[in-house]
C-alpha cells in the first residue's frame, strides 16, 4: 500500500495549497518520502509569509525609520510607539492578540466590478492565516527593520549630506541619491539577519491562533503532525530543519549578492561582509 516517492510527490507535493490527495498519510504506512515531500510542501507557506512580509515591510520600515528620526514630534512619537510595541512584545502573543481583534470585526462581503473584472473582498479573509497572519508579520518586521534603518540613518556620514547640499541637490534627490544608498549599505548586514529571523518566525503562524484550513499548514505543522503520528521526533523534525537550513542558505546567498551590489563602489578589501551580528538580532 505504501506509495512510491513519485506517487507521494504527486499526492502531496502541493498538499499545503489544498491540491493533491486529501487524506494525509496515516498509521504504519508513513514513508520517509512522504515526510520529506509533505514537510517540503508546507515550506511554501513559510516562503509565502516571509517573502511578502519582507517585501511590504521594507517600505513601511523605511517610512517608519524616517519618521522616527524626524524633528517633528507628531511624526516621531507615533513611529517610536509603534516600534516599541512590536519590538517589546513577543510575536507569539501578537498573533493571539491580533487574531482576537480580527475575529471580532463585522463580517462584510463586498465586490467591485471593473469592466469585465469582478473583484470580491470579504472581511472574513482577515481571520485566515494568509491575510491575518501576514498582517501581523508585516507589522512585526516593519518595527524591527525600522529600528535597523533608524540606526543606519543616524550613521550616514554628515559630510555626504553637506556635500550634496553644496551641490544644490533638492531634498528629495538628496535623500534618493545620497542618503538612501548609504543608509541601505549600512543597514544591509543587520537587515539580512532580520530577514532570516523573520523567515524562521513564520513557523509560529499555525502554532498560535490561526486555524488550519483543510489541514493545509506550514512545514512545522506537518513535521509536528508526523512526530505525533509516528511518535518519533528523530525523523520529522530533522527533515524540517534540513529544509529550513537549505532555504536559509539560499536567502543568505541572495542577500549577499545584494550586499555586493550595494558595496560595488568600495574596494573589495574594505567592504563590510554580511556577517552574523547578534547584537542586531530581533
Amino acid at each position: 500500500m505504501a506509495m512510491t516517492c513519485m506517487e507521494a510527490l504527486g499526492a502531496y507535493g502541493l498538499r499545503s495549497l489544498g491540491m493533491g490527495q486529501r487524506a494525509l498519510p496515516k498509521g504504519d504506512e508513513i514513508t520517509l518520502c512522504e515526510q520529506v515531500i509533505l514537510i517540503g510542501s508546507g515550506l511554501i507557506w513559510n516562503l509565502y509569509f516571509a517573502v511578502l512580509a519582507l517585501a511590504i515591510g521594507f517600505f513601511i520600515a523605511t517610512a517608519l525609520g524616517l519618521m522616527k528620526s524626524s524633528d517633528q514630534p507628531w511624526l516621531r512619537q507615533p513611529a517610536a510607539g509603534f516600534v516599541f510595541i512590536f519590538r517589546g512584545s513577543p510575536l507569539f502573543i501578537q498573533f493571539f492578540f491580533v487574531y482576537a481583534v480580527l475575529v471580532s470585526l463585522p463580517k462584510i462581503d463586498a465586490s467591485l466590478t471593473l469592466g469585465s473584472l469582478e473583484l470580491g473582498f470579504s472581511t472574513r479573509w482577515f481571520t485566515k492565516a494568509w491575510l491575518g497572519a501576514l498582517i501581523v508579520l508585516v507589522l512585526n518586521t516593519s518595527a524591527y527593520a525600522a529600528e535597523i534603518f533608524y540606526g543606519a540613518l543616524r550613521s550616514v556620514p554628515h559630510g555626504d549630506v553637506e556635500a550634496a547640499k553644496a551641490y544644490g541637490l533638492p531634498p528629495v534627490a538628496r535623500f534618493r541619491r545620497v542618503v538612501w544608498p548609504t543608509l541601505l549599505r549600512l543597514a544591509w548586514p543587520a537587515y539580512t539577519n532580520e530577514a532570516i529571523f523573520l523567515f524562521h518566525a513564520t513557523t509560529l503562524v499555525f502554532f498560535s491562533s490561526f486555524p488550519t484550513w483543510r489541514q493545509s499548514g506550514d512545514a512545522l505543522y506537518y513535521a509536528n503532525y508526523f512526530a505525533e503520528k509516528t511518535f518519533n521526533p528523530f525523523v520529522a523534525y530533522p527533515i524540517a530543519a534540513g529544509w529550513f537550513i537549505l532555504v536559509t542558505l539560499i536567502l543568505i546567498a541572495l542577500f549577499g549578492t545584494v550586499n555586493a551590489y550595494l558595496n560595488r563602489h568600495i574596494a573589495p578589501g574594505e567592504r563590510r561582509r554580511v556577517r552574523y551580528r547578534p547584537q542586531f538580532m530581533r
Binding site: L220, N224, A227, P233, Y237, A241, F244
Partner: peptide
C-alpha cells in the same frame, strides 16, 4: 541557530531528550 528556527528545537528537544 542561524539555519534552524528556534521553534523546531523547542518542539524537538524535550521529546528527543526524554526518549
Amino acid at each position: 541557530v542561524r539555519g534552524i528556527p528556534d521553534l523546531i528545537f523547542f518542539l524537538f528537544v524535550p521529546l528527543a531528550m526524554d526518549q
